[in-house]
Simulated assay, not measured.
Amino acid sequence: MTNPERDPESGKLTERYSDEDFLEAVAELEPASTREIAEAVGCSRRNADVRLRKLEEAGEIRKKKVGNSLTWFSVE
């Protein structure tokens, strides 16, 4: 997992977890719940949910609702 760093120009923290961290977790665990991916990446479930939805919107992964949970898959 990546570590946060400060942008030298803005002083803001950069992303702590890369898209690749989430994509790797999905590929390793699929089908996987948001909670399982969050645990694998080492972030909160809320953070994982936001990032996974962005990756899904970008066409990088896909989701399926199972009961009350979202299950994530790699794009085939």
Rank of each mutant, 00 (worst) to 15 (best):
N3R: 10
T14C: 13
N47K: 13
R6H: 10
R16I: 04
E28M: 14
K12D: 14
Y17K: 13
A48K: 02
I61Q: 03
E28H: 14
E39N: 10
A32L: 04
V50M: 09
I37M: 03
E39F: 07
K65E: 05
E9L: 06
A48Q: 03
G11Y: 05
L52Q: 02
N68G: 09
K64V: 01
A58Q: 13
L29A: 02
E20G: 12
G11T: 02
E15T: 15
E9F: 03
A58E: 15
D49A: 12
P31E: 00
A40H: 10
N47C: 09
E30V: 06
S74D: 13
R46L: 09
K12G: 10
V41K: 00
V26A: 01
D7K: 02
R62N: 05
T34A: 08
A48R: 02
E5S: 14
T71P: 00
M1A: 05
F73A: 10
D49H: 13
P31Q: 01
Y17D: 07
L70G: 01
E5K: 11
Y17H: 14
N3V: 10
W72Q: 08
S10D: 05
V66W: 02
E39D: 12
K63T: 11
L29W: 00
V50T: 11
S18A: 14
E9M: 01
P8R: 01
T71E: 08
C43D: 05
K65Q: 07
S33G: 07
M1K: 12
A27H: 12
N68P: 01
F22N: 04
V75M: 11
E15V: 15
V66C: 00
E56V: 02
S18F: 09
L29R: 03
G67T: 02
E56K: 08
L70T: 00
E60K: 13
N3K: 11
P8V: 00
G42N: 11
L23K: 15
T34K: 04
R35L: 08
P8G: 01
R35W: 06
N3T: 12
I37V: 15
K54I: 07
E76H: 09
G59K: 07
V50C: 06
K12H: 13
I37F: 05
E28V: 12
A40N: 11
T14W: 14
R35S: 07
V75R: 09
K65A: 04
E60N: 12
